[in-house]
Design a protein around this nucleic acid. Structure first.
Length: 512
RNA sequence: CGGGGCGUAGCGCAGUCUGGUAGCGCGCCUGCUUUGGGAGCAGGAUGCCGGAGGUUCGAAUCCUCUCGCCCCGACCA
């Protein structure tokens, strides 16, 4: 935290009910933490290094993400299962690259039941190994394939540096694991799930993403190829929001997962794995939130509408609350889920009848990112209207609007859908504005000076050495080599760093 | 693992230099008045001053040793 920002924050907290949110301009990382604290999404666990407590409002967002994703996994033929938290240490060492990649960040259980264990367990950093082991027991014939499972779980990686939601020692995620009889089929699975993630990010989180392939140095430890979705955060940095890996036969060989082919031979299975984590919550924050706090797209909002009753005496209070309850009951039947969705998404309404002044409530709910606020007082009852304020001024509503009650109820779905679309449109515009082609090293240095970042489309000579040097000098990494339709069309050019020939531009940015 | 910061009331902090028996703001509780953008007044509760040793008549404060957390880098969903 910067000294100035802290002093300012303390001063501003004096005499106020809630804490202060540092403006993004002043100190972006501090803003991020302030939003999380003020929206009551999570807090550092303190007593457990690098871990966080996800508070009810934060967890409710995760549950919404989870529910939608789960429906998409099932719609693509996957089933949920659950594997042990602890993995025999020897399992991790069976795949050479996998050991190397994960060893430094493992937490190991050496004692249990009051005794030293013969073989230590590691707390899963990911489950390829133990799932590989069970796949080898479950798969005998090509008739057992494809095997498509997903696990919702917690995992643990002892990272050197943690940030709430973006990188914590323990985090929640989903990991899909599949086994196929041919490489082509596995590759198709990898792309199918990448598309699931990409569509989900855009349609549900209103977070536009670039789909691409990781370079060798950024590839998952043990994978043949890693594909990813990358999102632009408001500070110009990139967030890897999801990955889908082609594991080839690497784990098949390591865990002897063989099957009898249709032709009667024997072969190792071709596997994939794919995952997204609670990091997505960080993505929502850094895509939409503003200096007043969190902003939630309706499809991830646990609460869509908050009604703040306004009254001067008990009689008005009971009248207003009765009217509020009637509106709540009508809204509660509205299903926001898109057609053909696997689940229903009814509007959640909170009537905030706490004994606080309305202004105080307005600030609180704004910080929590609730999309729609309704003020309801005696004047509104007299006129049969409601006072509506959207969390952010967009084409879906600006300022305080006074609308007939029945009209408000009748159009709430359109209003929320429109708001969802507007947030996506704004995020897309930002992505466009912050994306640029860069061809000279001077221009590159200027674009990434200090803490600055942007989505830079640059030519790269394809070597690990160049990639490493760029990273060393600027902290900029190659986020991905874009898939067709993502980023500029392929064109020959010269590497922004080395000047050597390049076949296409890649996405470069500083990353979370 | 390097660099920086910090452990004192639920939260944020002052007090530490210059030892003298713990304070401010917010929040919390009670009451009254309030309620369309962060309410006002009056009363009230809350502390093993991170832990362990030491120095001293006396330690939040000085000395030694520890434990932990946060932030900034290198590593990564």
């Amino acid at each position: 935290m910067k000294q100035g920002a802290r002093a300012e924050q303390q001063e501003d907290q004096v005499g106020k009910a809630g804490g202060k949110i540092t403006p993004r301009e002043t100190d972006y990382p501090q803003w991020y933490q302030d939003v999380i604290r003020e929206a009551e999404l999570a807090e550092p666990a303190k007593v457990v290094k690098g871990c966080m407590v996800i508070k009810p409002h934060g967890y409710a967002i995760w549950e919404k993400l989870q529910r939608d994703l789960d429906g998409r996994f099932k719609a693509t033929g996957h089933q949920n299962a659950y594997f042990p938290l602890l993995v025999p240490q020897s399992f991790i060492t069976k795949e050479a690259e996998h050991v190397e990649g994960f060893s430094p960040e493992l937490a190991v259980v050496t004692h249990a039941g009051g005794e030293k264990l013969e073989e230590p367990y590691v707390i899963r950093p990911t489950s390829e190994t133990i799932i590989g082991y069970f796949f080898s027991r479950w798969i005998e014939s090509y008739r057992d394939l494809p095997l498509l499972v997903n696990q919702w779980a917690n995992v643990m990686r002892w990272e050197k540096r943690t940030r709430m939601f973006l990188r914590t020692t323990e985090f929640l995620w989903q990991e899909g694991h599949t086994a196929h009889s041919t490489h082509e089929e596995a590759q198709a699975e990898v792309m199918r799930m990448l598309d699931v993630y990409g569509d989900f990010a855009e349609q549900v989180m209103a977070m536009p993403v670039i789909r691409g392939i990781k370079t060798d140095s950024e590839r998952f430890a043990g994978a043949v190829q890693t594909t990813c979705i990358e999102a632009l955060m408001q500070d110009g940095k990139a967030l890897q929001a999801g990955t889908s890996h082609d594991l080839g036969q690497n784990f098949g060989k390591a865990f002897n997962v063989m099957f009898q082919t249709e032709a009667g031979g024997r072969d190792y299975v071709w596997q994939t794995s794919w995952g997204v984590s609670t990091r997505l919550v960080g993505g929502v924050i850094m895509t939409h939130a503003d200096d007043s706090g969190l902003v939630l797209p309706p499809r991830v909002a646990p609460i869509h509408v908050v009604i703040v009753p306004i009254y001067k005496n008990d009689e008005e209070r009971s009248q207003v609350l009765a009217a509020a309850e009637s509106i709540r009951a009508q809204l509660a039947d509205v299903d926001l889920a898109p057609p053909r969705s696997r689940h229903r998404d009814f509007i959640e309404v909170v009537i905030d009848d706490r004994d606080l002044r309305p202004g105080n409530k307005f600030y609180m709910w704004e910080r929590k990112g609730v999309p729609v606020r309704v003020e309801l007082g005696p004047k509104d009852l007299a006129k049969g209207q409601v006072c509506v304020k959207m969390r952010v001024d967009t084409a879906a509503g600006r300022g305080k609007e006074f609308i007939a009650q029945n009209e408000f109820v009748a159009t709430i779905k359109e209003r929320l859908d429109r708001f969802q679309d507007e947030l996506l449109r704004i995020a897309r515009e930002r992505l466009q504005e912050r994306s640029r082609t860069i061809d000279t090293w001077d221009e590159f240095l200027a674009a990434f000076a200090g803490e600055k970042s942007t989505f830079a489309w640059c030519h790269w000579d394809g070597t690990r050495e160049t990639e490493a040097k760029i990273k060393e000098q600027t902290r900029v990494t190659i986020r991905c080599i874009p898939l067709p339709g993502h980023g500029p069309a392929p064109e020959e050019g010269r590497c922004v760093f080395s000047g050597n020939p390049s076949a296409r531009r890649v996405l470069m940015a500083k990353a979370y």
